[in-house]
Amino acid sequence: MNSLQQLGHGALTAFQRLGRAHLFLFAILAGLPSLLLRLRLLIQQIFSVGVLSLVITVVAGLFVGMVLGLQGYNTLVDFGAEDSLGVMVALSLVRELGPVVAALLFAGRAGSALTAEIGLMKATEQLSGMEMMAVDPLKRVIAPRFLAGVLSLPLLAAIFSAVGVMGGYFVGVGLLGVDEGAFWSQMQSRVDFDEDIMNGVIKSIVFGVVVTWIAVFEGYDAVPTSAGVSRATTRTVVYASLAVLGLDFVLTALMFGEI
C-alpha cells in the first residue's frame, strides 16, 4: 500500500513538473518579442552560451571526424571502396553526429552552466530581488538565455560537422592517401543539401530548443539550496542527454526512415 502510494505520488509530481515546464515554456515564448529591443542582453548570452562552447565543439568535432576517417578507411579499404570515405564521413557527421554530439556537449557545457547560474540566482534571491524591482526575471534573465541557446546550438552543430569533415579529410586524404578528388566529388554527389544538411540543421534546432528549455527550467525550478542546485544541474545533463538521444531516433525515423 505504501509503495503504491509512493508510486502514485511520484507520478503526480512528475506530471505536475511536466505541466509546469510547459507553462514555463509558454511564458518564455511570450517574453521573446520584447528581447528584440534588448539585443545587447541576447548578445551577452550568446557569448556565454555559444562562444564559450566553441572550443570544446571544435576540438571534439575534429577528433570525431578523424576517428571516422580512420575507422571508415579501415572498413572501406577491404572493399576497395576507400574513395567513398568522404561520403561516409560527411553523411555520418551531417545527419547524426554533428547535431547529436554537439547537443550532448552543449548540454554538458552550456546547459549545466545555465542551470547552475539560474539556480544560484534563485538561491541568492536575485530572481525575487528582480521581481521586487518590478523586473520580470522571465524576460530579463530566462528569455535571453533561452533564445541564445536555441540560436547557438545549430551554429555549433554546423561548425562541428564542418570541422569533422576537415578532420576526416586530414586523416583520409592527408595520412591514408585517399584520392582527394574522389573524396570531395563522391561526397558532393551523394550528400544532398535538402535531405541531409537541412535535416541535420532542423535536428540541431530541435535539440537546441529542448536542451536549453530543460536547462533553464531546471535552474528556475531548482530547490534554492546548494544541494538543490547541484541536483538540478545533474538533472539537466541527464535529462537533456536522454532527450537528445531519444528525439534523435524519432527525428531520424521521420526524416530518413521508412518505419
Partner: peptide, 24 residues
Amino acid sequence: LVGIFVAAGFAALFMLAMKVSNLN
C-alpha cells in the same frame, strides 16, 4: 567574439552546403 562566432557558424553551414553537399 559573438560576431565571429555567428560568422563562423554561417561559414560552416556555407561550407557544408557548397563543399560537402550537392547544392553547388
